[in-house]
Design a binder for these strands. Structure first.
Lengths: 148, 148
DNA sequence: GCAATATGCTTGCATATGCAATTATTTTGC
DNA sequence: GCAAAATAATTGCATATGCAAGCATATTGC
């Protein structure tokens, strides 16, 4: 009824929505953070200097810059992240994780890993997991686009 | 640094967010609907009687029942969907697509298919597409859970 | 048959998010 | 070197969404 590309894209959205919904409840009750707050801190950890501007965060998370501004404000207030200004460009305000934020991320990553395990609960082969990893990697937008 | 399950789950969310963001703009400007409105109409089309209660829609879309109520109201107003009451249970109000809604869905599906094609633009083999399809299918929650 | 419980839907309130406009700063073109 | 354009961040306004409470209708237990 639909071509294979359409079917795959629909299944991708379906699985992602399911997984995100299953995460949301546990993240909120156990760690007191949202999935997006978790992903924001993960992006900080993975960034080269462990810090990112709001604009960079917005691009990586596929949300608007204003969303980042409003997400970061309460995270600063509760001490998960801090700010770090750039000496050469006074417009830039880097977001950095505090020690408390790093610990929160570490805890949340354990929950994430557990939930991720549920996704592959029905005996997947190592080969399959590797293939899926490569396929998903190929589906991400070109890095060049991200830097633009 | 992370186990393969975690990596795959993270990539899944990343790809899905990217794809959803790329859809959102074109759906809004070309078809005047949101991605979620599109998915809602798609669920109606795929339902056995081509109609679903708000509660069923909420389960399938992984959103709250109140969200469905508020999504459907403007869609009714602009004539994309109508309502269909159940003779035996006066609490039930089925959502059904109007002819206009079906045409809108058909148009949007063409856009969706085009965007889905971009996801697999770099020469994927038929085998790979089939494997991905099966893998994503295995990752969806059990149907039994959905009906509960 | 009726009270207690469950179910489907809606609504009040709080939070989350995007877009466009605004401000502050930097970069570019000449 | 300076005006124009670009960039980073914020804010006002509108929309989107979840949770809990409320209402109407069905179902259950006795």
């Amino acid at each position: 009824m639909m071509d294979i590309h359409t079917t795959n894209a629909l299944r991708l959205l379906q699985v992602a929505d399911e997984f995100r919904a299953s995460l949301a409840g546990e993240f909120s009750s156990v760690h007191g953070i949202s999935v997006n707050e978790f992903l924001l801190m993960l992006h900080l950890k993975q960034a080269t200097a462990h810090r990112l501007s709001r604009v960079d965060l917005a691009k990586r998370m596929h949300v608007s810059a204003s969303t980042i501004t409003r997400m970061v404000a309460p995270m600063e207030k509760i001490g998960l992240v801090g700010r770090d200004v750039d000496a050469r460009d006074a417009r830039l305000v880097f977001v950095v994780a505090t020690p408390a934020g790093q610990e929160k991320l570490s805890d949340a990553l354990a929950t994430f890993a557990k939930r991720a395990g549920y996704l592959f609960a029905d005996r997947w082969e190592e080969d399959e997991l590797g293939q899926l990893s490569q396929m998903l990697h190929r589906m991400t937008a070109r890095k060049a686009d991200m830097l633009a």
